[in-house]
């Protein structure tokens, strides 16, 4: 089992400035799943009821000279502590940038290598697996070892791959969030009022958020949003109704779906915008099985989707809706 690659400057920037801080909000520990073509950060895919997040990079988006081999179809997966990874990367960058990154004249000699190693940690007789970063500056060379879990067994990798395949389904209707910052501060304040959030999405392009407890009902409706996937024409005479009535009618007509999720999960999903996506879309999966948020990244300077990066989250739905 071998993995060795060099992080590109673009890759460093993506991880250090954008993705690691976003992913850290999803949960401290995640799976890092490496295949021949992709590096994928996965949260809560195998276990539990938490928010699932999937950040997938084509190997070219992060690395060059990417080499991987394993007896399991060249796939390697392990769990890693994101804050440790982030710290190690930040620390090694201080040395790496002494040379001005790989833009210096002496390109070949200054690169940031990442590889899987087994080492004997101090005061231990058992070798342990590490993800190791290595680079050098003017006067020093640095190695940062990030402890990782034992690589997943073949069966576990298969299970992870199956869960990943399952998680790729897109909802039939997705609506675009108008302003992530505004939505974030709104939900941040809203979460003081209750724990359970009703999310309704219509094919007309409405996103309706509501918290309802025995003491208060608090909601916000965003309308005329961009819709991807199945759409429907806005019924006439809908303008003067309340948000609640409009949503109820849309659900009755089969033009909308509604699910209940944890406010905390919803807030976490918004925090993904630390990864600086260009757009975000919310949608409800078929049969209301989960709430999905899909982030879109553009090729810098264009409006074209950057297909080498993808990020989406799936929020578990709270069962037994209707009761508070």
């Amino acid at each position: 089992m071998k993995f060795k690659a060099f992080l590109t400057d673009h890759g460093i920037n993506l991880l250090e400035k954008r993705f690691l801080q976003a992913l850290d909000k999803m949960g401290k520990v995640c799976h890092l799943y490496l295949t021949r073509d992709h590096a994928i950060f996965l949260h809560n895919l195998l276990n539990g009821d938490g928010i699932q997040s999937i950040a997938q990079f084509q190997k070219e988006a992060l690395f060059e000279d990417y080499r991987i081999s394993s007896q399991n179809d060249d796939r390697i997966a392990f769990t890693i502590d994101l804050s440790l990874l982030h710290r190690a990367l930040r620390s090694i960058l201080t040395i790496y940038t002494e040379f001005g990154g790989s833009h210096s004249s002496d390109t070949a000699s200054n690169r940031l290598q990442i590889k899987l190693v087994k080492k004997l940690p101090p005061h231990s007789s058992q070798p342990m697996p590490f993800l190791t970063f290595e680079t050098k500056g003017y006067k020093s060379a640095v190695i940062q070892d990030v402890p990782i879990s034992k690589p997943l067994s073949r069966a576990d990798v298969l299970e992870l791959q199956a869960a990943l395949d399952m998680a790729q389904d897109l909802p039939q209707t997705l609506v675009q969030v108008p302003d992530m910052n505004q939505l974030q501060s709104f939900v941040d304040r809203m979460k003081h009022v209750g724990d359970v959030l009703n999310v309704s999405i219509t094919k007309y392009g409405d996103l309706h958020l509501q918290i309802s407890t025995s003491l208060i009902t608090l909601g916000a409706e965003f309308r005329k949003l961009k819709v991807i996937g199945e759409q429907a024409r806005v019924p006439s005479g809908d303008e003067n109704l309340t948000a609640q009535t409009r949503t109820r009618r849309a659900i009755d007509k089969g033009d909308a779906m509604s699910v209940q999720v944890s406010v905390k999960h919803f807030f976490k999903s918004i925090q993904c915008h630390l990864a600086k996506p260009d757009c975000a879309f919310y949608g409800i999966a078929q049969q209301g099985s989960c709430l999905t948020v899909v982030f879109q990244f553009f090729v810098p300077g264009t409006r074209q989707t950057d297909k080498s990066i993808s990020l989406h989250c799936r929020l578990p739905v709270l069962i037994d809706s209707g009761t508070n």
């Binding site: 025995s214 003491l215 608090l218 916000a220 409706e221 949003l225």
Partner: peptide, 11 residues
């Protein structure tokens, strides 16, 4: 705005 509204009902 026409495209967004916030509402609350306090018991």
């Amino acid at each position: 705005s026409l495209s967004s509204c916030t509402y609350a009902e306090i018991r």
